[in-house]
Amino acid sequence: MTDFLTLLAVPMAANALHFPEFSPAIFSIDLRFMGLGVFHLRWYALAYIAGIMLAWQYANAMLKRPTLFGGKSPATKDDLDDIMFWIILGIILGGRFGYVLFYMIPYQQDVIAADPLSVIRIWDGGMSFHGGLIGVIIAILVISRRRALRLLPLGDIAGVVAPIGIMFGRLANFINAELYGRKTDSAFGMIFPEGQVPGSTPPAYDWNAGQWVYTGFEFARHPSQLYEAALEGLVPLVIASILIWKFGALKKPGLVAGLFLLMYGTGRSIVENFRLPDSFASDLPLGLTMGMILSTPMWIGGAWLVWNALKPKPLHRID
Rank of each mutant, 00 (worst) to 15 (best):
D82H: 06
K77A: 08
L89R: 04
F129R: 07
I92N: 07
M84I: 15
D124V: 02
I105W: 04
I91C: 03
D79M: 07
Y103V: 00
Y107L: 12
V100W: 00
I137G: 01
A113D: 02
L117M: 15
G131H: 12
G70Q: 04
S118N: 08
I92A: 10
H130C: 03
D81E: 14
R96K: 07
G94N: 09
V119H: 04
Q109H: 10
M127Q: 08
I120H: 11
D79Y: 05
P106S: 09
S73D: 01
F129Q: 09
G126N: 13
F129S: 13
D81K: 08
F85G: 09
G125L: 07
I122Q: 11
K77N: 14
V119L: 11
Q108H: 11
L89H: 03
V100T: 00
F97Q: 03
L80N: 00
V136T: 14
Y103E: 08
D115T: 13
I87C: 08
V100M: 00
F129E: 11
W123K: 03
V136L: 13
I134A: 15
M84R: 04
F85M: 13
G71W: 06
L133N: 08
I137A: 14
D124F: 05
G71V: 09
Y103R: 02
Q109T: 14
Q109N: 09
S128D: 12
Q109C: 10
D79C: 09
I88W: 01
D115G: 05
D124P: 00
V111Q: 10
A75I: 10
R96S: 07
D81V: 11
P116R: 13
Q108C: 04
L133F: 15
G132K: 04
L133G: 03
V119W: 08
I87V: 15
M104R: 10
I91M: 08
I105R: 08
S118L: 02
P106C: 10
V119R: 00
Q108M: 13
I122V: 15
A114H: 11
I92W: 14
